[in-house]
């Protein structure tokens, strides 16, 4: 679960950066694409997105491989309630060892998280880019920088201060979204809390006990409280450091 946090946060930031750039692009279709990405992901419950993307990504990849690897396959891919692709297009291939399947499932979960949280991050970064004082960009132009140069040298370094409150909020949300991993069929803490906590009778195990699931989830609850509290303090410190000497009203 902590691995997921560590992997997803930068990926989501990357997605967000792309989305924010797209949303302020000068080419109209690209701008629409960026805006639509942000708007749709925000308007729909994210858990629906998690459930959707896991299957959609899986099928999408298999479909692309199917088109590429088996050009002479004549049957339709969707047969009634089945999704059939040729054996070579299976991803991961059916004879792969168990750990490959697990890693693949985990990777898809990460991409799904990144897509959803990327939209949130895109929104925050978009706002932050707009918040960089106009005079700064005008000064850059006066120095003869091109649009790209001004963006790279002036806007990006300065936007972080404006983005940080939103991003720290996002980080909290990301922490609180990690148990949803359970829904994506990955055996994470929630899964184990349910499995191990359930009533055990002496017939099946050496350590019989009653229904302990309540206590397992209490422990999880406390764990998450601690996690959010610690990151709250850390982010406050970071914010104080970043705004040091900056003319930002707080």
């Amino acid at each position: 679960m902590l691995l997921l946090l560590a992997v997803t946060a930068p990926t989501a930031l990357l997605f967000g950066f792309g989305g924010a750039i797209a949303a302020r692009a000068r080419v109209l279709p690209v701008r629409w694409l960026g805006r639509a990405y942000i708007a749709i992901v925000r308007g729909v419950p994210d858990i629906a997105f998690f459930l959707f993307f896991v299957i959609a990504l899986d099928q999408g990849i298999e479909w692309v491989r199917h088109q590429a690897l088996c050009p002479d396959w004549t049957l339709p891919v969707r047969q009634g309630s089945d999704f059939v692709v040729c054996a070579a297009a299976k991803m991961p291939s059916s004879n792969a060892p168990q750990w490959v399947h697990e890693v693949y499932g985990f990777a898809i979960a990460v991409v799904t998280f990144a897509i959803v949280f990327g939209a949130f991050a895109a929104n925050v970064l978009h706002g932050a880019m707009m918040a960089v004082p106009r005079a700064q960009i005008e000064t850059a132009e006066a120095y003869g920088m091109s649009r790209a140069q001004a963006f790279r040298r002036i806007v990006v370094p300065q936007m972080w201060v404006y983005a940080l409150p939103g991003l720290s909020n996002l980080w909290m949300v990301l922490i609180k979204a990690t148990p949803l991993l359970f829904l994506l069929g990955i055996e994470d803490v929630v899964y184990w809390a349910r499995e191990l906590g359930g009533t055990k009778t002496p017939q099946f195990t050496d350590y019989p006990h009653g229904d302990w699931r309540m206590w397992y989830f209490l422990a999880l609850l406390v764990f998450y409280l601690g996690l959010t509290r610690v990151s709250e303090i850390a982010l406050d410190r970071l914010m104080a450091r970043l705004t040091f000497g900056q003319a930002v009203a707080r």
């Binding site: 229904d211 309540m214 509290r229």
Partner: peptide, 22 residues
């Protein structure tokens, strides 16, 4: 406020369900 904002709703649901169950 800290308790309910600091922990995931998902875990709260699970916890509440098992509390009520017992």
């Amino acid at each position: 406020i800290f308790l309910f904002r600091g922990s995931p709703l998902f875990i709260q649901f699970f916890f509440a369900y098992f509390v009520f169950l017992s």
